[in-house]
């Protein structure tokens, strides 16, 4: 590829003061190889259109200000090379730039991240120290290096909100906790200096909490710091069982999955909603069930066991034994 070329940036712009809805503005600029998307946007702002509105600060991938969607994927503008994006353009040499998803747009690429901060507060995303207030600063906590291993990756999080933007559950439910808030909660729960694990976990397992994630892994793929967020989600779920918090639809659902698979090697889908939600919770599901019926999509009430169900059972038991050993 040549080292200098004309590139079109199609930027989704929206100024609620004057615009009825968002629209794409096109900027043609000649750029050289090695330029980041942020530098390109700054070039456009300085030389072409001073009204173009975007956030940026450190320009070094550590402050998290400049997360936007570039060619459809949420990421930091300051660590994204224009030349790399040219390879994923739908139309040759045309890069699409949009604000993050799942937030209200304030203007152009600037979104309102206050709901994310509010969720951090709701789920107590802080260490409640075991050291008493009057004793703070007197001596170090004794923490062995391996105790921090579970939280090392999680403390890389810069709150850029790329995972929040990509999360499919947050898109469906604005009250959903969101991946980064679970990650933060996990980081606090696993910190041996923290004393609020019980209270935090109780909040996490309530409605709009950890049980709503459907493991689409979009957050993991989007994370600009490559944090294994799904491990945090699974980790907190595991913790609810350890703390005996099993009386939620989510916990029941998980347990039924395990029991079914252990029993016949297969999920009994027809009775799954009843067993998860209970008879009263089921009432709300009736219209949905009727629609399924009308389309001929009702699963069998008593599915056959899979032929290898004994092997499946042995496998599950083996895994259970291994994980007990780890604990």
């Amino acid at each position: 590829m040549e080292d200098r070329k004309q590139i079109t940036f199609n930027v989704l712009c929206f100024n609620p003061e004057v615009d009825e809805k968002a629209y794409f503005k096109s900027y043609d600029v000649v750029l050289e190889k090695g330029i980041t998307v942020l530098r390109a946007l700054n070039y456009i702002k300085d030389h072409v259109d001073q009204t173009l509105t975007h956030r940026f600060f450190c320009q070094a991938g550590i402050c998290g200000s400049c997360a936007i969607r570039i060619n459809g994927v949420s990421k930091l503008a300051c660590t994204t090379q224009v030349w790399d994006e040219l390879e994923t353009c739908k139309t040759k040499d045309q890069i699409i730039v949009e604000p993050l998803n799942n937030f209200k747009v304030i203007r152009d690429l600037v979104v309102d991240i206050d709901p994310m901060i509010a969720k951090l507060k709701k789920y107590k995303s802080w260490v409640v120290p075991m050291v008493k207030d009057e004793d703070l600063g007197k001596k170090e906590c004794d923490v062995k290096p391996e105790e921090f291993e579970p939280i090392n990756a999680a403390t890389d999080c810069i709150l850029c909100a790329s995972c929040y933007s990509e999360c499919t559950i947050t898109e469906a439910d604005r009250h959903y906790i969101s991946p980064l808030v679970i990650l933060r909660a996990y980081r606090m729960n696993m910190d041996t200096r923290d004393t609020a694990g019980e209270e935090r976990t109780r909040l996490l397992q309530e409605d709009h909490g950890i049980w709503d994630c459907t493991h689409c892994y979009r957050c993991v793929e989007a994370c600009v710091k490559n944090i294994p967020i799904m491990e945090a989600i699974q980790g907190v779920r595991h913790e609810t069982f350890e703390r005996g918090m099993t009386n939620t639809a989510g916990a029941r659902h998980a347990k039924i999955f395990l029991d079914d698979v252990k029993g016949g090697g297969r999920l009994k889908e027809a009775t799954l909603p009843l067993r998860t939600l209970g008879p009263i919770g089921m009432i709300g599901m009736i219209p949905f069930a009727l629609k399924m019926g009308a389309k001929g999509r009702v699963p069998p009430i008593f599915p056959h066991k899979v032929s290898t169900h004994r092997e499946v059972k042995t496998l599950v038991e083996q895994v259970e034994k291994e994980s007990k050993k780890k604990d």
Binding site: L136, D142, M188
Partner: peptide
């Protein structure tokens, strides 16, 4: 030293030595 210990007590994940100190 007071500040570092205070910040550590409040949750800053300072890297550790094998003996568990900062």
């Amino acid at each position: 030293p007071i500040l570092i210990r205070e910040l550590e007590n409040l949750g800053a994940p300072f890297s550790r030595l094998e003996d568990g100190s900062i």
